[in-house]
Design a protein around this nucleic acid. Structure first.
Lengths: 355, 355
DNA sequence: TGGCACCGTGGAAGCGCTTCCACGCCGCCT
DNA sequence: AGGCGGCGTGGAAGCGCTTCCACGGTGCCA
């Protein structure tokens, strides 16, 4: 605003004049259109360089209706985003792909209604060409609000209640992963299982629980009958809802110990909670894996670093990020066309010493 | 593009027509100008709501020359960004402040020349109103390129060679922090110190090294004379350049052991390297702190979790983020006006069991 | 009661860019 | 040798918004 505002950035018009061509030709030369003579193109590029011309993004976006940016949205408290390496890994994969497509990755956290409104405004206002959503809880409205306004949306994970089923997504097979974990401990003779779930308004938590149920049912067991003495040899499962944090894992493990006499296996739905459980068990002098086996989920770096190294379900997190970003970029290019549904990656059990 | 493109998002014109006023009045009502009658304002807001109107960001930005977004730029390999909690903490603080100002935080990693070009284009093109730079190495050109084009820039940390001295910044007193660490080990009778620095093209590394030098000089010691037998009782310091990664810390620790007979203290310039050193010392059967004291820097969460809990220099990382974002927001509002220079926060030595 | 100030409003300009369209030129085919 | 197609180019429109400016209406003061 002040008088010094000066240093007016070069405009396309200035470039055109310097190069001795019309604005139309200059524009074509700069956007790489083939309908320009080599001569004109060269002069324009030279002029642009000499003026350190940077096109005005707003003006361009106004007419092209594209911004060449992709949003990466985490619907979670900042706290969780920054403490769970899960997000960093996915973000890393996504960033690679988005950068490779010469687009800018715009990162956003949606933790409050305020954040949500701001994000919708920002994204639907045309600042991004597509949005990738992570950690979507039931009832989250942002993805639908964006879709309504024509912004392509990609989910990491299965859509929860309140989000349309047909949203393109990148996912891993959570049922299979959790089932493998449960079968693993059952196979080692464990019979009194305790599951620490994630927030049950998240599909990942639901699905992982379902995986355990199937494994136990297949082994002739009972789910949700923690108290009563199950017939000898028949597996039983108790379920406690956690919140995907270390501290939540501690608390849940304490609850399980209290409720399940003879508890001999803890299946945590992510590694952070498993680490919390590990800590509590150590404090109580309970041996892992001698007394209780502990299995995590995700295979974050911490998993292989902790006390007894954690048996866990490895997820290809970076690939998940790459996959989702690839979808998002495709949608950004093609408008909200059919999004080929996305893909489902396979998790893999990694057995270490905690089980 | 396809036929279905339809669902044209509502424009200001549509809102104005629905409300029965002119576009000018509608605009004023929506931007909160006082020069609108209550009646008109209400009708416009109602119309906007009923049409789920979201202003076109590009059009608005084109005329206001503001985007209401702030960039957070980390000049570092993705790898480092995601593995060092340092960045997460600063980002967290910055995000808070930016969100509170009703702006969007745009996150970017600049690891290659390509990334740099893209960022400059993106930011100078008007997608952001200000940019916060972290981990700026000597010779980094992006901040200056943005400043030249009128985009306000804030640095976290002191500007390295190649970046103007007068860039507003948020910083901590690295000299004082490192000096405190060195005085601490000297005070406990350690005499043969080894310093593992960060990349020496970064001011933080330079300054921390300087802090150690001052402490040692004050104690009558010699710097950089590792080999020869120093006079008994006179402290000496050997310096090995690290890279702020755990693995780099391991390697540097090995180098120090080799070069410095009687090494009895390792001062690592960040916690990640200190953890690497800790690991190597353990492997070699060298006792910490009995044989060698180890001190880190940053006080990331890991520092208090590792083997012998790490003595380290606590930095107010979130505050650093908040501070830098506050500056950036102020600049975004005021144009590239004088940036009150920023502030220098005080680090604090935290003594744990590794020293 | 006439004039003035002020307030709310609408018309219109224009931000910087892309792209449609029309135009002139050259070279080729018939 | 005349006409036609195609290519490179420039003029001009217009993306959706904010804001300057001018204007009519009202209420107040003299």
């Amino acid at each position: 605003m002040s008088a010094e505002a000066g240093r007016t950035t070069a405009t396309l018009d200035a470039v055109a004049r310097t190069a001795g061509v019309s604005r139309a030709t200059a524009s074509r030369a700069l956007t790489g259109s083939p309908r320009v003579s080599d001569d004109a193109r060269e002069r324009v590029l030279a002029a642009a360089a000499s003026l350190s011309y940077v096109p005005n993004a707003a003006a361009r976006a106004l007419v092209t209706r594209r911004s060449d940016a992709v949003a990466f949205v985490v619907c979670e408290q900042e706290e969780r985003f920054f403490s769970d390496p899960f997000f960093a890994s996915v973000l890393k994969g996504a960033h690679r792909v988005v950068a490779a497509s010469r687009r800018q990755l715009v990162f956003a956290v949606v933790a409050s209604e305020d954040d949500r409104a701001r994000l919708v405004r920002f994204a639907a206002g045309g600042h991004v060409d597509a949005a990738i959503f992570l950690s979507v809880h039931a009832g989250e409205t942002a993805p639908e609000r964006l879709r309504e306004r024509g912004v392509p949306v990609v989910l990491v994970g299965r859509p929860p209640a309140g989000v349309a089923e047909d949203v393109p997504r990148a996912d891993t097979d959570n049922v299979a992963g959790a089932r493998a974990a449960a079968e693993h401990v059952l196979g080692r003779g464990r019979r009194r299982l305790g599951v620490i779930t994630g927030p049950l308004d998240m599909p990942s938590a639901e699905d992982r629980l379902e995986g355990v149920r199937r494994a136990v049912a297949a082994a002739g067991g009972v789910v949700g009958a923690p108290g009563g003495p199950a017939p000898a040899g028949e597996p039983s499962v108790a379920v406690v809802e956690g919140d995907y944090t270390t501290e939540g894992g501690r608390r849940a493990a304490a609850a399980l110990l209290e409720r399940v006499p003879g508890l001999d296996a803890v299946l945590a739905q992510n590694d952070l909670m498993a680490v919390g459980a590990l800590g509590l068990l150590r404090e109580r002098g309970i041996g892992v894996p001698d007394d209780v086996a502990v299995v995590g989920y995700d295979d974050i770096p911490l998993a292989s670093a902790v006390g007894p190294a954690l048996t866990t379900v490895h997820q290809p997190l970076e690939e998940l990020g790459r996959e989702s970003a690839t979808l998002a970029v495709a949608l950004a290019v093609g408008g909200a066309e059919e999004g080929r549904g996305g893909s489902v990656l396979r998790p893999r059990l990694v057995v270490r010493s905690s089980s």
